[in-house]
Design a protein around this nucleic acid. Structure first.
Lengths: 151, 151
DNA sequence: GTCAAAGCTTGAGTTACTGAAGCACTCGGC
DNA sequence: GCCGAGTGCTTCAGTAACTCAAGCTTTGAC
């Protein structure tokens, strides 16, 4: 490892402040891009969570909200033609949310139109990209509550 | 800086996926801690945005939502005794939101209780902390739309 | 003084979200 | 085969978040 040079190690509070600011800005970029396509941020977030088919219950887990809430969100996605409910083979209680081709296209378009996020990426060096990616992957299991079993 | 070793540079899509996952997990940790103190995530986010006094209009800008929305959020914070509206000297149209001592205490308590976030910080080396902090500070102006005029 | 514009609130209407029932289905045991 | 506990989804209140369109007060320029 190289020199830490003159830079001092940031405190937890400083890191938290910086992370929160970046997170909020990223989210606003996301919400704005989604709104341009007539989607609320909840709907767009749900769409991004069903790139592979997911049961309603599991989707609620991913979104961190109550299952009854997901009913309404998926209702609206279905009305818009962006996702469908399919019966699960083997358990007729379960309904599986499946993204449609149109849903996938809109999702890609939204991600492509997050201009500020892309600008931010372009402002980073290769070393920074590698560092950020590796930090994210290392930290995610802890942050998401899967303290053990790192695949 | 040292060697990039075998690690390859992540694509924009990979970075975006990783960032989104970390952002979502961070937000859930935040929302859960706020809920333990009877605050919604919007209320807690607003509370964190008024550490210094802020006019209603500017607060709407920080939260990325309509000004009329802020009226309701601040109403509830005021009912809870966590913030107050004060008249601005010099312009009687403006109302300035000021956090109370109790508000500040609850905010600190929420931040202190974000257990998973703190765990994630503790799992990082000093080099990683420095790198993350520096990347965040560098990227924030771009991501927040202040492309020119740093600080 | 007048008038456009800015800052905040109110009102109507939709979405997001929670908690408590409720219905349909599964699976274990008897 | 049937009964009962448990699971998955929906429905139904009820509240909060959010937007848009008016509305009111104040400001500042002319």
């Amino acid at each position: 490892m190289g020199s830490i040079s003159t830079t001092t190690v940031p405190t937890n509070a400083e890191l938290m402040e910086a992370l929160a600011a970046v997170g909020a800005a990223y989210f606003q970029d996301f919400a704005a891009a989604a709104a341009r396509h007539g989607l609320s941020s909840s709907q767009a977030k749900a769409l991004g969570s069903v790139q592979e088919p997911v049961p309603m219950r599991a989707l609620a887990g991913r979104l961190g909200c109550d299952a009854s809430n997901v009913t309404g969100i998926v209702d609206r996605l279905e009305t818009l033609g962006l996702a469908n409910r399919e019966a699960a083979a083997g358990d007729r209680r379960v309904k599986i949310v499946v993204i449609t081709a149109e849903g996938r296209e809109i999702l890609n378009r939204i991600r492509g139109e997050m201009a500020r996020t892309h600008q931010a990426f372009e402002a980073m060096t290769d070393e920074q990209r590698i560092a950020l990616h590796s930090i994210c992957r290392q930290v995610l299991p802890v942050l998401a509550g899967r303290t053990v079993a790192p695949q």
